[in-house]
Design a protein around this nucleic acid. Structure first.
Length: 671
RNA sequence: GCUCGCGUAGCUCAGUGGAUAGAGCGCUUCCCUCCGGAGGAAGAAGUCGCAGGUUCGACUCCUGCCGCGAGUACCA
């Protein structure tokens, strides 16, 4: 019996009692966690609601406390409930049977797959990262990837089957810009670029960093060279068309950048199942298939007059001011070409498994851990068998920044218009705000700010301007800083161990930093804050877990068996004595908090908000630090109390480790 | 103009309609006879943007303002 199961059962009992005693069907039973342990483990403010409804139904005025009394006597019959108190104007405060609960959960998994949830048993697709493959990833891209990867882990933990996709826009204007740079600024052909790439490797430099600078340079040249700018459309056209020298060159550039970005992300423990590419969506003509269906369903029509004359448009509901009216979105231009939104609708249909056609697939890369990532291909001859079945997500989550809310909304409506049975609920836009730079951080990166920029609270990062904190640079700095700390604290450790620990700390710091803000908050990047290992940081949580683990390491060193210690807890009276003692509340609330991981993960999944999990891990760590400070666990002389303390500490370390792992943060062996 | 997001301690941010609004940083003062101080305790610090409304109860929901940010192409 886990905490969330217990909570669920109690809610049902409240519902039944309301129905049988007051003949009232409550829509939803609100329960809450009381602010203090002394006020119980679970509270129902339900008596207020019932009093209101009774008054409405019969006109009789009822005292909430009297109603609470009736509920109390019913709920107390349930054997996991120790006692119930009625507090304040009518709160129903439930106190669990602590001993019973402890014994029941002494070995339980802190994060069981929540297979009982209906919504959890499904295949879902999560798309994240999707960096344009024309430059290195910056910290804003990492926010996307960390949110996506963490959310994906949360979904898995709560029982879903998850496929992770990283969309590759290899035929877009951004790749074209870098290709323009290679061809027209540097006079390079494909062989020359390959030679450059090889040369960079010998100098231990990376291709994506080179492209980062080149992309910025092209942006600058466009400002003063109109002729160069006119090359962009030409190059873009050739890339889209395919099967020509420019397209081959572009493919090499894009693919190399994808490889670099995958390497960067793997440093953060982020991996993918599939890389769907825009080139295949184009060449396999996904849009035509969607177009047919849209015409068939009447979701789209040809405009013969007005400003959109000659276009195929999709009408959709829009509300402006107080009234709702129809608005049109152009999907096929008057020259017959499809818009980005049109392609996106077709692609979204593929993800949901309703397009009626598929990509071909070939392996792209095998990760060190053996996992394989596949890539799409339009050529049946290149197709390699043995791939999993991709797409067909019951729900599709797109991790895309909030500026794309409007186009995402239209894609959702477009799919719903063709497939009403899926509707808008199949597509979830997991939106998040950008990572921006504080003016001082921008200056630290060597950028000269205009007077106007200096007055702003933040400055948007821009790949086109080359303004941004590159992900690998930041991680390098974090690793160096962590390594210096590890060196001073663990001089005896091997060089390899120290490097590994420093890496884990660096990843923990950055992932936590990006997860502690809710998705709607703009992160104004600040080096001091991002490089910190103190206070609310990943390092703080890892340190807590390491200290907890140390206790068990010591036990093992002394030849004490944790299993035997736990098994010694059989006498309920003795345990109850511990919980009833002065420190009882303290010990109990630590155990209860450690038992809340499953419901926290469920909450994070339902709210599409990984920050909820980050806050939990931090609060659990903080509570454990205090617990650790207040209770001497190993030296505790009383054998039963010692066994209880050890059991609680064990629950904490398992729960904290699972919570951190779900955020992609590892617990080092020592720090 | 319209749409969306944000406005909470000096700063950066949490906060399911519920009990005395919390955390980190910064500031002041303390705490290692050890299961590791990357830690812990205590303190100072709040008109929850403003004004109405709904409710037994509003930081939370509704309406209207104010301020900040973003989006709103037959671009890609």
């Amino acid at each position: 019996m886990t905490l969330s199961e217990l909570q669920h059962i109690l809610r049902e009992k409240v519902r039944e009692t309301s129905l049988s005693n007051f003949d009232l069907e409550l829509e939803q039973i609100v329960s809450e966690i009381p602010p203090k342990t002394e006020l119980g483990d679970l509270a129902f403010p339900v008596a207020f609601e019932l009093a209101k409804q009774i008054k409405q139904a019969t006109g009789e005025k009822q005292n909430p406390r009297g109603i609470a009394e009736i509920l109390k006597s019913e709920l107390e019959k349930f054997d996991f409930v120790g006692r119930i108190e009625i507090a304040g104007p009518g709160y129903l405060n439930v106190f669990y049977d602590r001993t019973r609960f402890l014994l029941e959960n002494i070995e339980s998994d802190p994060l069981p797959r929540l297979a009982s949830l209906d919504w959890a048993k499904r295949k879902v697709c999560v798309e994240h990262t999707s960096v344009n493959p024309n430059k290195a990833a910056h910290i804003g891209h990492v926010r996307n990837s960390v949110i996506g990867d963490t959310f994906q882990r949360i979904l898995r933990a709560t029982g879903s089957e998850v496929e992770v996709q990283n969309y590759i826009d290899n035929t877009g204007v951004q790749v074209a810009d870098v290709v323009v740079g290679f061809i027209y600024l540097e006079n390079r052909d494909l062989d020359s670029i390959k030679a450059l790439d090889a040369e960079l490797r010998t100098k231990n430099q990376t291709f994506d960093y080179y492209c980062w600078d080149l992309y910025a340079k092209v942006g600058q040249e466009y400002q003063k060279d109109e002729e160069l700018k006119s090359k962009r459309a030409e190059v873009l056209h050739l890339i889209e068309e395919g099967n020509n020298d420019t397209a081959f060159l572009a493919d090499y550039v894009a693919t190399r950048n994808v490889e670099c970005i995958l390497d960067t992300m793997e440093r953060f423990d982020i991996r993918y199942d599939l890389l769907p590419r825009e080139s295949e969506i184009l060449h396999l003509q996904f849009w035509n298939k969607a177009f047919e269906q849209m015409k068939e369903m009447g979701a789209i029509h040809f405009e013969t007059e007005g400003k959109n004359a000659g276009c195929w448009v999709m009408p959709f509901e829009e509300h402006s001011g107080t009234d709702e009216h129809e608005s049109d979105k152009i999907l096929v231009r008057s020259n017959g070409t499809v818009t980005y939104t049109g392609k996106d609708i077709a692609y979204q249909m593929w993800k949901l498994g309703v397009l009626g056609m598929d990509f071909y697939y070939k392996p792209f890369h095998t990760y060190e851990n053996g996992r394989q990532v596949w890539i799409t291909t339009a050529n049946v001859d290149e197709s390699v068998g043995g791939s999993p079945e991709f797409g067909h997500g019951e729900t599709v989550y797109n991790v895309i920044d909030t500026r794309q809310s409007y186009p995402q909304e239209i894609v959702k409506k477009g799919v719903a218009a063709i497939h009403p049975e899926i509707g808008e609920k199949g597509s979830v836009h997991l939106s998040y705000e950008m990572v921006a730079l504080s003016p001082s951080a921008a200056e630290e990166l060597g950028f000269v700010l205009s007077e106007e920029d200096k007055t702003r609270t933040f400055i948007e990062m821009s790949g086109r301007k080359g303004l941004g904190v590159k992900a690998d640079d930041l991680l390098d700095r974090l690793e160096a800083k962590a390594l210096a700390e590890v060196e001073s604290r663990n001089p005896e450790a091997s060089a390899e161990d120290k490097r590994k620990i420093a890496h884990q700390i660096a990843v923990g710091a950055l992932r936590y930093f990006l997860l502690k803000f809710t998705r709607t908050t703009v992160i104004v990047f600040d080096f001091k804050e991002a490089l910190s290992f103190e206070g609310e940081t990943g390092c703080f949580c890892q340190y807590s877990a390491v200290r907890a683990n140390k206790i068990f390491q010591k036990l093992a060193d002394r030849g004490d068996s944790v299993e035997a210690i736990k098994a010694s807890l059989v006498n309920a009276e003795e345990i109850s004595e511990i919980f009833g003692s002065e420190q009882g509340d303290d010990i109990w609330s630590m155990f209860v908090l450690a038992s809340r991981l499953d419901e926290t993960a469920e909450q994070a999944a339902n709210a599409n908000e990984p920050a909820i999990l980050a806050k939990y891990a931090f609060n659990l760590s903080k509570a454990f630090n205090l617990f650790y400070h207040n209770h001497k666990i190993l030296p505790e002389p009383h054998p039963v109390k010692r066994a209880v303390l050890i059991t609680v500490a064990d629950a904490v370390r398992r729960s904290l480790t699972a919570a951190l792992n779900t955020m992609g943060i590892q617990v080092p062996v020592r720090m």
